[in-house]
Every structure is written in C-alpha cells, then in structure tokens.
Amino acid sequence: MGEYLRNWLAEYVKVNNAPRTWEGRAHRIERHIIPALGRLPLTSLKPDHLQRFYAEKLSGGRIDGKGGLSGATVSAMHLTVHAALETAVRRGLLVRNVADAVDPPHVERPEMHTLNEAGLNAVLEAARRTPYFALFYVHLFTGVRRSEALALRWCDVDLALGHVYTNRAMHRLRTGEIIFRAPKSAHGRRMIALSPSACLVLRQHRDNEEALKESLQDDGLIFCHVDGSPLLPDTVTHAWVKLVRRCGQGGIRLHDCRHTHASIMLKQGVHPKIVQERLGHSSIRLTLDTYSHVAPGLQEAAALAFDNVVLASSKERQPEPIR
C-alpha cells in the first residue's frame, strides 16, 4: 500500500494537480496514511481497515499526541485514499474501490460570520492607518479571494472603465516558494466591476506606489513590498486579525470579507446570478446554498415585490376572501 501511494503521488498527483494539491496529499499520506496502512498489501485493504483508521485519527490522531483530529482533516484523508484507490481501479490493480464502502467522518459546516454595514465602515476606518488599507478595501468591495487579490497586477485593472480582471492566484508552498497559477476553473477567470469608491482607493494607492518607486510596471503586483516582491499570505492574514480585534470584530476572518460582500449585495436585492459571477462560483446553486440563510427577508421581499408589480398594473381591486 505504501509503495503504491508514493508512486501515485509521483506519477499521477504531481503531474495532474496543482502544487498545493500535491503538497497537501503528500503530507496526509506520509504523516498519517502510510504509518497506519502502508504495510498492508494493496489488494488486502478492506473497508474495516479504513473505518478503524478514521476512528483512531478522530480519537487521537494528532502528531503531538494532544487529542484527535477534526472531522474535516480526517475527511480530507478519506478523499485522498479514495482518489488513490480510484486510480488503482482504473489501472486494473483493483477490482473495486473499498473506500466506497466506508462512511467518512461527518464535517460540520462552520458558522459564517460577516460584517454589517457599520462594522465594515469601522474596520475600513481603522485600516486607513495601516499599509493594507487598499488591499482590505478591494477584498470587501469585490469579494475576491486572498490568493486572487495578492496576484493582481496593474495590467489586470482598468480604472477608466472600472473593471478588475482575475486570471490567476498566488500561493506559498510549505517550502516557502511563491507560485502563481491560473484559477482551478473557467469561472475563476472573470471580470469584476469596481465601484467608484474602489477606483478612487486604487488610484490613490497607485499614486502612493509611484511616489515610493522609481517606476511602476504594468505587470507589477498591485499589492506588494516596496521592492515589488509579493506580500506573504500569512502576514496579510495576521494583519487582518489584529485589525478586526482592535475594532471589536474578533472572529471575522479575512475570508469573511468575501462572505460580507456577498451577503450585503443579496440584502440589497442584487440578483444571485450577479453575485455568483463576482465571486467566481462554479454554479448559482453553490451561491444560493451558501448565502441564502444570511439574507433574512429575501423571500418576504420577493413576495411583496411580486404583489406590488401585479397589483400596480391592474385597476381591479383585490378579490374578497372566499367565505
């Protein structure tokens, strides 16, 4: 089993997946899966082996010995094992994928936290005194992911038309290497309309950058150090955590800027299809499933709007209720 998994990583995952995907799967295989299951012959692996392995990881799977792993972490191990065995089935090494007969751990959906309008303005006001004001402004006013924002170049922005084009993402590997990659899906490549205030913030940011640098290159990063080198993702996240704590908004993650952007737009009656396009979701169903519960009153507002449209176009009075 161990030999097959290492070959699978080298011959399949590393060739067909993004470096971050390979890195995550390699970590789970080397640190957890091979130590527990690696000595088993591939064809001898049974559902009971996997079910017992997941149970052990949930109860005491931490490397430091301080308790069990989360359901999400163990579920990721299940997905890795399932993918590896599915490849073995396609190659004729196995007759069936025994992971199909295993119940993976239940993953609790984390509670979503968002800023309201007052909280958003308080955070932005505090951010003005930091080097990350423009970056956090773009996060909140476009809903882009951290990896997408940190990969933006000046050539990706049209301030005259008020558009930003996301066509790549920045990641930092465990080795410290910075990589830029195209989005995972076609929906990740998108044009996002900028609000007038976002355009003003970016113009001011560009003016500040030009004052600090000898020249500003079109292919240069928008959000970077003075020497043009990329900002480290974890550094940006730590700066955000400190900022929201100072504002009394602890618990709001940087990724929650994305949720905040979507929920405020939905509350204002923006069509979910537009929100989907701005966020780069693969389907409108994903958008609706993720954000419908954070916009209370949408159903009532829709019913009232329908009532107003229909009754306004009719001169007849509403029918009397049937008795």
Rank of each mutant, 00 (worst) to 15 (best):
P47Y: 11
D48E: 14
H49L: 10
L50P: 15
Q51M: 13
Q51F: 05
Q51C: 04
Q51H: 14
F53D: 05
Y54H: 14
Y54G: 15
A55L: 15
E56W: 09
L58H: 05
L58S: 10
S59C: 07
S59V: 06
R62H: 09
I63C: 01
D64W: 06
K66A: 14
G68R: 09
L69Y: 10
A72M: 09
S75R: 12
A76L: 12
M77V: 05
M77E: 14
M77Q: 13
H78L: 03
H78G: 07
T80N: 03
A83L: 08
A83V: 05
A83P: 10
A84D: 05
L85M: 12
E86Y: 03
E86F: 02
T87K: 14
A88H: 04
V89K: 13
R90Y: 08
R90W: 06
R90M: 12
G92S: 12
G92F: 11
L94Y: 06
R96C: 02
N97W: 11
V98H: 06
V98C: 06
A99T: 05
D100Q: 14
P104E: 05
P104V: 03
P105Y: 03
P105R: 01
P105N: 02
H106I: 08
R109V: 14
P110Y: 09
E111S: 08
M112N: 05
H113C: 06
H113G: 06
T114P: 07
L115V: 10
L115K: 07
N116Q: 08
N116P: 08
E117Y: 10
G119F: 13
G119N: 11
V123F: 05
L124T: 02
L124S: 08
L124P: 02
A126Y: 04
A126H: 14
A126P: 07
A127L: 04
R129N: 14
R129L: 09
R129D: 12
P131G: 08
Y132D: 07
A134M: 01
A134T: 00
L135N: 01
F136N: 03
Y137S: 13
V138Q: 00
L140E: 09
L140A: 15
L140W: 04
L140I: 06
F141D: 15
F141I: 02
F141L: 04
T142L: 00
R146Q: 09
E148A: 01
E148I: 00
E148Q: 01
L150V: 01
L150I: 01
L150E: 01
A151H: 00
W154E: 04
C155E: 15
V157I: 14
L159E: 01
A160Y: 13
A160L: 12
L161Q: 13
L161D: 11
L161H: 08
H163V: 13
V164T: 13
V164I: 14
V164F: 01
Y165F: 15
Y165D: 01
A169S: 15
M170T: 06
M170P: 02
H171F: 14
R172L: 13
L173P: 00
L173N: 02
G176T: 06
E177A: 11
I178Y: 15
I178Q: 04
I179L: 09
F180L: 10
F180S: 00
A182D: 08
P183F: 00
P183G: 00
S185W: 00
A186G: 06
